[in-house]
């Protein structure tokens, strides 16, 4: 009897930890970081972390959708810079915040539609197509500005530096984008189709899904997020920097991966990505608070990514085995 009870308890715990493991890790980090540094657990510091991660996290949500569909976007950082630069330029020309914002988003969408077109029309591997876009978009940003930064943005800074009820605007945008992504992935046909395409493209096509159209849409939405991130970034630094965003695509991918998105496609969630972004944010923050040397920080981050992914894969294998067990169990009842 006691044996049976402890079995049930273990089964319950393993179910809990496998389904919510990522949230438990976040919670554990929160506790450990608070113990390690008294400066960590304060409203100001947590608000700072949120603001720091907000821009790459916005990119992360688009990246998550792409990775779920078996796609990738290496150009996110470059396109972000190009969109931000052109948004700044339009603002300086027109003085209209609305037109500037729209421009940034439209540029992001346009660049990604080009990538999506190359991927779907010519069957180019997404890695290659967006690698090409990465180079071209960066070139375009540098060409337009002649390699010079743009300064004196006046009102433009309210996007990135403003706050609403004390919460930084980029954080609010991040939360909204996370809800949008959650909605798209969970409540729309588009979302389900992304999972299906990433899980088995042939079967998705044979199920009547418009595969190319869905991929284009995913690139477009992700482009809109990237464009938005570009506007927020330039606004926050109060400058148009053509060299901004180098490596942002990898930070975005990191948050996705830590959050449980599978590079084999078909698996991933919006909330996972948000949590993944916070885990990385906490990690960066605590390492800074503890005064860990910055090059060393990079090595530690690399290690964490490997551990997280290895753990995730191992726990999934276990889960599949236990599900198999359940089926045979049911077979017996029947």
């Amino acid at each position: 009897m006691a044996q049976r009870f402890s079995d049930m308890f273990l089964a319950f715990m393993s179910k809990l930890t496998s389904k919510y493991s990522i949230y438990l890790i976040l919670l554990a980090m929160l506790v450990i970081c608070s113990l390690l540094s008294p400066a960590f657990f304060s409203a100001k510091n947590l608000s700072n972390i949120s603001r720091q991660i907000s821009i790459t996290t916005i990119i992360s949500f688009g990246m998550t959708m792409l990775i779920i569909a078996g796609l990738i976007d290496l150009a996110a950082g470059s396109v972000m810079a190009l969109a931000g630069i052109l948004s700044v330029a339009i603002y300086k020309a027109t003085g209209s915040l609305v037109i500037a914002m729209v421009t940034g988003i439209v540029i992001g969408i346009a660049c990604n539609l080009v990538s999506g077109f190359v991927v779907t029309r010519f069957k180019t591997p997404p890695f290659i197509a967006t690698l090409a876009m990465m180079t071209s978009a960066r070139g375009a940003a540098l060409l337009y500005t002649n390699g010079q930064n743009i300064y004196q943005l006046d009102q433009f800074v309210i996007f990135g530096q403003g706050d609403i009820f004390g919460i930084p605007t980029p954080v609010i945008v991040m939360v909204i984008i996370s809800l949008v992504t959650w909605y798209l992935l969970n409540n729309t046909r588009f979302g389900r189709h992304l999972y299906a395409i990433g899980g088995n493209e042939d079967a998705a096509r044979a199920s009547g899904i418009k595969v190319n159209q869905t991929k284009m849409t995913a690139y477009a939405i992700s482009g809109a997020f990237v464009g938005l991130a570009g506007v927020l970034f330039m606004s926050r630094v109060n400058a148009g920097l053509p060299n901004a965003g180098i490596g942002f695509e990898f930070d975005a991918m990191t948050a996705s991966i830590i959050g449980g998105t599978s590079f084999s496609g078909g698996v991933g969630t919006a909330m996972g990505t948000l949590v993944g972004a916070f885990i990385m944010g906490f990690l960066n923050n605590i390492m800074n608070l503890l005064g860990i040397q910055s090059y060393l920080q990079q090595i530690i981050k690399g290690g964490i990514i490997v551990i997280a992914v290895a753990y995730d894969i191992m726990s999934k294998n276990k889960k599949t085995a236990s599900q198999l067990g359940n089926i045979e169990e049911r077979g017996k009842e029947a």
């Binding site: 409540n187 389900r192 899980g199 079967a203 998705a204 084999s264």
Partner: peptide, 26 residues
């Protein structure tokens, strides 16, 4: 036939989601 990494429900619904669309999506 199947999307191996997805669950029974999603596999089953894949070709007929438009029939369960409510006001706020699926």
């Amino acid at each position: 036939g199947i999307i191996p990494v997805r669950d029974v429900k999603e596999n089953m619904s894949l070709s007929s989601l438009e029939r369960v669309m409510g006001r706020f999506g699926i």
